[in-house]
Design a protein around this nucleic acid. Sequence first.
DNA 1: TCAAGTGTAGAGTGACCGCTAAACAGGAAA
DNA 2: TTTCCTGTTTAGCGGTCACTCTACACTTGA
Lengths: 117, 117
Amino acid sequence: MTSGKEKFGAFIRREREAREIGLREMAKKIGVSPTYMSKVERDEFTPPTEDKVRSIAQILECDPDELLAMAGRVPSDLADIIKRHPVEMSALLRTANGLSAEDLARLSREAGKAKGN
Amino acid sequence: MTSGKEKFGAFIRREREAREIGLREMAKKIGVSPTYMSKVERDEFTPPTEDKVRSIAQILECDPDELLAMAGRVPSDLADIIKRHPVEMSALLRTANGLSAEDLARLSREAGKAKGN
DNA sequence: TCAAGTGTAGAGTGACCGCTAAACAGGAAA
DNA sequence: TTTCCTGTTTAGCGGTCACTCTACACTTGA
């Protein structure tokens, strides 16, 4: 469930420690300074750029979309989709909003079927 | 249809002139300097912030979502929706992508129905 | 005791974003 | 000709973003 209101930094620190990865090691893999990593994990700095969030997600084996959401970012591929079909996608998202998880899943299946045609 | 590849600035200039609104008047209504307006309309500056794009849309009587898309921005309410349901909405958008306009319309109706329940 | 590892504090930085002020050129109207 | 309009040029500016560097304190093990 990855909790509801947990901040980005707190989350990745917890997950990192759970996997027994050192802060310096993590920072190196992502390509940032340990200092920066430290501040991000304590939510003293805002989360890094999309590509870095994505590589964090990979290292921590968690959902990139979810992690990006925690980081307060919209995945750029989704942004592109919306920009290409602003009217349709805006309508879709706004009506989809507020639906139950089950209804959403049904809707995605529906979309998948249409795509198949 | 508002054309496919037209830039933001070119579009609003055309629409503004079609409505016989002066650049200075427009700038004033939006709350920016004429200088800025001029450069934006000639695509020398990037489009303004979301709220200003929205008020431009209102003045020019065109779809805010569409205009925001031209401005390269994702409407903030949509961004919020995605951030609140990243997994579901990402899946929905990605499968919805590539669907025909008709299929998308059907899908939105489908969503509307589910919402009604 | 000291060396090597952990994470942290404080300060600063370059690039970009969103926008402005002052000045000016060209045309229409008086 | 002067006086307004129109839009445009040049220069710049405060703020935020996404970071880094140096230095430090604490713990652990040899």
